[in-house]
Design a protein around this nucleic acid. Structure first.
Lengths: 197, 197
DNA sequence: GGGGAAGCGGACCGTGGGTCCGTATCGTAC
DNA sequence: GTACGATACGGACCCACGGTCCGCTTCCCC
């Protein structure tokens, strides 16, 4: 046991910060409007606690994001088709992209907060690396497809949080329409044209 | 004449700020490392002048970016093929994407500064709207292609500054290789597979 | 219930974007 | 050339925000 179990108040406060931050990000227009002090106050906690628990702003956002994302990742890694590992790549790739899109639609502001973090590029985040690796591996199993690594990047770029926000939030594109567009785009890239050529 | 001609010193200072900012952004690792005070000092100018001339940080970056981008836009709007308007869409679209990619490779830090601007989404910038409209119009002329608007967004997302920076700067992918990957990706989307199907 | 570690919290600090206004410079009219 | 109004300059100043620090509290374990 290298891990000592954390104190009760620490756990409670961590949870309080989580829910407070979640609420604030969801409510506010731009993630920049939510300050660390705001979150601390809303959670009924001192700023020090907040920084002690998460390191810095970026760490807090990342922790929150990953907690919310967890179910999706589980569904992909060990869930039933079409997301699960038993699915053949040609269907699993679009399913994965759709799942990511839906997640970002449901957590627009949080995703925006994570990716729009100025200093540190979203591409260095650990979870991006994971998505990319997973997607690239799937693409590599598709015969006749080259440049899997780049293709994976380009496909993921199509579901970037700020693009999703721009289309869904600003241009008011309905959810199902976006999903359709994305599916059709993925089909083009994969060579599985939806309409008989 | 609603415009009064600007004073000589104003023009001189504006130019000085431009070159100073350009140099600083090119030299520094992350755009966040370059402060407004830095730029003012390097240009031999007071901070007030700088803000008077450009409004705010974002305005300065935008002005600089657009000035550097001008030649590219000219080449697309009135230049010779394959960029110019006389080119058929199937060749012009990849040419445009390649031009954007090359521009971002040559102006990595500046593009990064523009797009990674936290508060205001890159999708609300005027120049993005122009790229998107142009690309979408080209796509619409290609028979059998649906969802031109979304496709244009997705293609442009593949040349986002931070992705380019990640691949070129961090992963050390050579320039020609990236251009090749992008061209092949565009070909997939356009349905013009490079290798006989 | 006593001792020590883990955690708390809010006063405090540094930094950087943005403002303000007295002063210098420019353009122009004579 | 000079005088004068308009325009621009510049750096001291302000303030919001991320992040730190340390005396005090709470918890855990014996």
């Amino acid at each position: 046991m290298t891990e000592r179990k954390p104190r009760k108040d620490a756990v409670r406060n961590r949870a309080a910060v989580f829910t407070a931050a979640d609420t604030l990000f969801a409510r506010c227009e731009s993630p920049a409007d939510v300050t660390m002090a705001d979150i601390a106050t809303a959670a009924g906690v001192g700023k020090g606690t907040l920084f002690r628990a998460f390191g810095d702003r970026s760490g807090l956002i990342r922790a929150l994001y990953e907690a919310r994302l967890e179910p999706v990742r589980a569904a992909i890694e060990e869930g039933p088709p079409p997301l699960g590992p038993a699915t053949p790549p040609l269907q699993r790739v679009p399913a994965l992209l759709d799942a990511v899109l839906c997640f970002k639609l449901d957590n627009r502001h949080l995703a925006l907060a994570l990716e729009g973090n100025g200093s540190d590029s979203p591409y260095r985040a650990e979870h991006y690396e994971q998505w990319h690796t997973m997607l690239r591996d799937m693409l590599e199993q598709i015969p006749g497809l080259t440049d899997s690594a780049f293709t994976a990047h380009a496909l993921l770029a199509a579901v970037r949080a700020d693009l999703v926000e721009h289309l869904a939030g600003h241009k008011r594109v309905p959810r199902e329409e976006m999903r359709g567009h994305l599916a059709s785009f993925a089909a083009k890239v994969l060579g599985t044209h939806p309409r008989g050529d």
